[in-house]
Amino acid sequence: MGIFSRLSDIINSNLNAILDRAEDPEKMIRLIIQEMEETLVEVRSSSARVIADKKDAQRRLDRLQSEADDWEGKARLALEKGREDLARAALSEKQGLLDEIKVVEQEFNALDDHLAHLSEEIAQLQTKLNDAKAKQKTMMMRQKTVSTRMKTRSQLNKDALNDAFEKFEHYERRMDNMESQLEAEDLGRDVKQSLKNEIDSLAQDDSINAELERLKADLSPKKDD
């Protein structure tokens, strides 16, 4: 089922209101444009038929007028020849044609009015269609702009995150370098310290041994006793 039930619904429609109520405005504007284009094709087809009927009516008018003129010529000829009876009969034929001409003229005028109305509807429908297409273009541009902004923001967030990781890695490298320098400065110090401690221990052992020998000597019984 279409969005619009009649051509007048399209012409009198408020596109903004329709789109505001739509759950999916982009889908709705596509459907509106499709229905407008289909309706425009139908109205143009109707206009083409009316134009064809109008041309046919014009041809009939021209033929009838030609026949009426011909019967008038015959009436003149009959009068010139003194045959009033034939002239009267010829004028009667002409009158019949004139009556028919009036009917065809009414048909022609009706077709002309109908065609003018269709032309006005086509113009209004085309304006409405152009408006719908402009709105669709605006919506597409807005969607593209939003997508681009979202993509850009995502890229910026990604770049910011990468930058944070790079700074953290740079900080870790600095700490590693500082720790490495400290460790490099301590290289060899443990060996020297161990060697010094070992030598100092030897000296301490000699002192303890000497003290131990002294005590032994004090405790040993003297030979004179």
Rank of each mutant, 00 (worst) to 15 (best):
residue 46 S to A: 13
residue 162 N to A: 13
residue 52 A to N: 10
residue 125 L to V: 02
residue 147 S to K: 09
residue 170 H to P: 01
residue 196 K to P: 00
residue 101 I to M: 10
residue 123 A to E: 10
residue 105 E to S: 12
residue 113 D to H: 12
residue 33 I to W: 07
residue 13 S to F: 03
residue 40 L to S: 07
residue 202 L to Q: 07
residue 110 A to H: 09
residue 18 I to T: 03
residue 70 D to E: 14
residue 2 G to R: 04
residue 41 V to T: 08
residue 195 L to C: 12
residue 82 G to V: 02
residue 103 V to F: 02
residue 188 G to E: 11
residue 7 L to C: 08
residue 60 R to W: 07
residue 15 L to A: 04
residue 171 Y to K: 14
residue 24 D to P: 05
residue 71 W to P: 01
residue 138 T to N: 10
residue 177 N to T: 01
residue 114 H to L: 13
residue 64 L to S: 03
residue 115 L to Y: 15
residue 93 E to S: 07
residue 64 L to W: 02
residue 33 I to Q: 11
residue 46 S to F: 12
residue 20 D to R: 15
residue 161 L to C: 05
residue 115 L to V: 09
residue 110 A to S: 08
residue 125 L to F: 02
residue 223 K to M: 05
residue 10 I to D: 06
residue 74 K to T: 13
residue 26 E to Q: 14
residue 143 Q to P: 02
residue 121 E to T: 04
residue 127 T to H: 05
residue 6 R to L: 13
residue 188 G to I: 03
residue 2 G to C: 02
residue 70 D to H: 06
residue 157 N to R: 11
residue 109 N to V: 01
residue 23 E to S: 14
residue 156 L to M: 10
residue 103 V to L: 14
residue 24 D to S: 08
residue 21 R to K: 15
residue 185 E to P: 00
residue 7 L to D: 09
residue 224 D to N: 05
residue 7 L to I: 15
residue 12 N to K: 12
residue 147 S to I: 08
residue 25 P to H: 03
residue 225 D to N: 06
residue 172 E to D: 08
residue 203 A to Q: 13
residue 88 R to A: 14
residue 1 M to W: 10
residue 190 D to E: 09
residue 156 L to W: 06
residue 183 E to D: 12
residue 196 K to C: 05
residue 36 M to E: 13
residue 160 A to C: 06
residue 5 S to G: 08
residue 165 F to M: 12
residue 40 L to Q: 13
residue 20 D to H: 08
residue 30 R to C: 06
residue 222 K to N: 06
residue 177 N to V: 00
residue 39 T to D: 10
residue 130 N to V: 01
residue 208 I to R: 05
residue 103 V to K: 15
residue 142 R to D: 12
residue 208 I to G: 03
residue 16 N to D: 15
residue 108 F to P: 01
residue 8 S to C: 03
residue 207 S to V: 10
residue 44 R to F: 01
residue 183 E to P: 00
residue 179 E to F: 15
residue 66 S to C: 03
residue 194 S to Y: 10
residue 17 A to K: 11
residue 117 H to F: 14
residue 102 K to S: 13
residue 176 D to G: 10
residue 124 Q to C: 05
residue 52 A to E: 12
residue 79 L to Y: 07
residue 121 E to H: 10
residue 54 K to C: 04
residue 137 K to Y: 04
residue 184 A to P: 00
residue 192 K to I: 08
residue 105 E to A: 11
residue 167 K to G: 11
residue 46 S to D: 15
residue 32 I to K: 02
residue 125 L to G: 03
residue 62 D to K: 12
residue 159 D to M: 08
residue 26 E to H: 04
residue 41 V to K: 11
residue 208 I to H: 09
residue 25 P to L: 04
residue 122 I to W: 01
residue 31 L to G: 06
residue 72 E to V: 04
residue 148 T to P: 04
residue 10 I to E: 07
residue 207 S to T: 11
